[in-house]
Write a protein that binds this DNA or RNA. Structure first.
Length: 568
RNA sequence: GAGCCGGUAGCUCAGCUCGGUAGAGCAACGGACUUUUAAUCCGUGGGUCGAGGGUUCAAAUCCCUCCCGGCUCACCA
């Protein structure tokens, strides 16, 4: 903690102003911005202006450009441009940190350009001294003697504030200078205007210090880069890094739009147990806990699947659940021990219906969040326009190895030899099912770039999926791959209780042969099936990974607010 | 679990190769400045160099052990 700030807090406490209870806010900052700043729709423009200042940013060079009258806007160029000279710049109009900005600006040799004034008039409206009251964290402060500028920020944006001694009175103005630091949360009341450079600004008539920050803020230019601090003290990341704020707002929108879509399609949102007496429904190691009153072990769910299917038996024809699953396994860029899944089930559907539905669902989510079906992910172009490519599991393997389905399903020793040639670790001891899975992993997965469905998996790998109607070696199951990552897993559900029992028994054999993740038997679920489950299609979508793709980040920790870290 | 990389001021980083009084910018503190915006100008203070041990006259720097994180692999949907 910082000495000088503690002293200021002490003074505030003595005056009874330290931690007020409430402040009336008339708007969120973003509301004000969208009210007076029109969308630019990427309009192509040519603008003639003097370049006043050039700074290096990640995207290239940020230019502050001004008209002869001193009205300013921004431009971003790839090539560095000399400050102090007049240029005619061409590019697409947008907003950078809510200021008008010419993106991809290129200097032209000659021609006529628009004036900054005319653009400002069109897109940045005059707020005409509207009276407002805003609150937020003070993130910058520039003292000019008898006047003072700063920016306050909330989750929706930031806005400039302007304090003048002659408006506030000497006492109030000096008190502000004495007691307020960057990082503090303040409320301001005043009138909206534009400064002579054209920036939307609150002329402050009264202020309140709402909470003091006893620690100095991270540096304003670089933000917080240390990933360990960003994950452990996520609030600092959210204060300092706009990119982080954007990702979590996007995540929230994605989940909301998934709900909107499913609700509209007649699905019922439900909640099923997270504490389960048997952890089943997926192949994974569970977390174990103990319930004192029931005097028994419980498991944190590895999947909600078997409960959701019980609801199908109960007659809820379309159900979904969005929630955490827990798997006691490794942590890396695509795995967190607790992660968010969407699972949904629809009676009378099969996996063909699910594929079509998945395409519609993702189209809706993309259009309503990022606004486009074509995106860039880590430098790769990905087009979500349906229909997605569909590949058969064994066709992909045959293309890679020249060996057909019979080889993989009947010639275990031959397969083991192939696995060794591929340098798959522990190839000597892996079970048949694991061998197939690994070989597919190594040979095929990374190359599945575009959104594509891999379908018709071997039955060995899919104890809850219904046998394929044309081939008893296979099941009617698909996985959706995007950018080499598995995003969704779905199948026509197995609804024959006898066959389900056999599949569970087979899993127990796998477990005895050393597969720790093989599925547990759930007798109660089989009883449910005995009452009759209609033909049903069911699917799980990994929300974290989907958000990774849409946010264009390469680590799952970037889309989980508080990722799992070792305690220090 | 293995390999590689990193941890230095509140933040972003330099210094480590080749041991010799721990640096810059921002932030802070004092001062000037009533339209600034990475404000500017003058001045000041600020460090368990991740922790512990070793080598040495002397260690941020060389060696060892450990902690935390990142990436790759292994494991895993």
């Amino acid at each position: 903690m910082e000495e000088s700030r503690l002293r200021k807090l002490q003074r505030l406490k003595e005056e009874g102003k330290a931690y007020p209870y409430k402040f009336e806010v008339s708007h969120q900052i973003g509301d004000i911005r969208s009210k007076y700043e029109k969308p630019t729709d990427k309009r192509q423009v040519k603008v003639k202006a003097v370049v006043k200042r050039v700074s290096k940013i990640e995207e290239g060079f940020l230019l502050r450009i001004a008209s002869p009258q001193g009205i300013e806007m921004l431009a971003i160029t790839k090539e560095e441009i000399q400050a102090g000279k007049e240029y005619l710049l061409m590019g697409s109009l947008g907003r950078y940190e809510s200021k008008l900005c010419i993106f991809d600006a290129k200097p032209l040799e000659e021609g006529e350009g628009l004036s900054i004034e005319s653009l400002k008039e069109e897109y940045d409206l005059d707020p005409q001294y509207e009276e407002i009251s805003l609150a937020g964290r003070l993130i910058t402060l520039r003292s000019m003697g008898k006047a003072l500028f700063g920016h306050i920020q909330d989750a929706t944006g930031k806005i400039q504030i302007y304090l003048r001694e002659d408006l506030l009175g000497k006492d109030v103005f000096e008190e502000f200078q004495d007691l307020v630091d960057t990082g503090d949360i303040i409320g301001v009341k005043g009138k909206l205007f534009r400064t002579k450079t054209g920036e939307l600004t609150v002329e402050v008539q009264a202020y309140s210090l709402l909470a003091k920050s006893l620690h100095p803020m991270p540096e304003k230019w670089h933000g917080i880069k240390d990933v360990e601090v960003r994950y452990r003290q996520r609030y600092l990341d959210l204060i300092a890094n706009e990119q982080a704020r954007k990702i979590f707002i996007l995540r929230s929108k994605v989940i909301q739009e998934i709900r909107n879509f499913l609700n509209r399609e007649g699905f019922l949102e439900v909640e099923t147990p997270i504490l389960q007496p048997i952890a089943s429904g997926a192949n994974a190691k569970p977390f174990i806990t103990y319930h004192n009153y029931l005097e028994q072990n419980l498991y944190l769910r590895i999947a909600p699947e078997l409960y959701l299917k019980r609801l199908i038996v109960g007659g809820f024809n379309r159900v979904y659940e969005i929630g955490k699953n827990f798997r006691n396994e490794g942590v890396d860029t695509t795995h967190n021990p607790e992660f968010t899944m969407l699972e949904f089930y629809a009676s009378y559907w099969d996996y063909e219906d699910l594929m079509n539905f998945t395409e519609r669902l993702l189209s809706h989510v993309l259009i309503s969040t990022v606004g486009n079906l074509k995106i860039n992910y880590q430098g790769k172009y990905i087009d979500f326009t349906p229909p997605y490519k569909r590949y058969r599991y064994f066709e992909l393997l045959e293309k890679k190895t020249g060996k057909d389905k019979d080889f993989f399903l009947r010639d275990v020793e031959g397969l083991r030899k192939l696995a060794k040639e591929l340098n798959i670790p522990k190839a000597d001891t892996l079970t048949h099912a694991k061998l197939i899975d690994k070989v597919f992993d190594v040979l095929v997965e990374d190359e599945l770039l575009g959104p594509c469905f891999v379908l018709d998996f071997p039955k060995l790998l899919s104890p809850l999926a219904k046998s394929h109607r044309k081939d008893q070696d296979l099941v009617e199951r698909f996985e959706l791959f995007i950018a080499g990552k598995e995003i969704a897993n779905a199948y026509t559900e197995l609804n024959d209780p006898e066959e389900q029992r056999e599949r569970f028994l087979q899993q127990l054999e796998e477990k005895e042969m050393g597969d720790e993740e093989a599925m547990q038997m759930d007798e109660d679920f089989i009883i449910a099936l005995q009452y009759g489950m209609p033909p049903t299609g069911g699917e799980g979508i990994g929300i974290d990974r989907l958000v990774m793709i849409l946010a264009d980040v390469d680590s799952i920790r970037e889309v989980i607010l508080f990722p799992a870290l070792r305690r220090i």
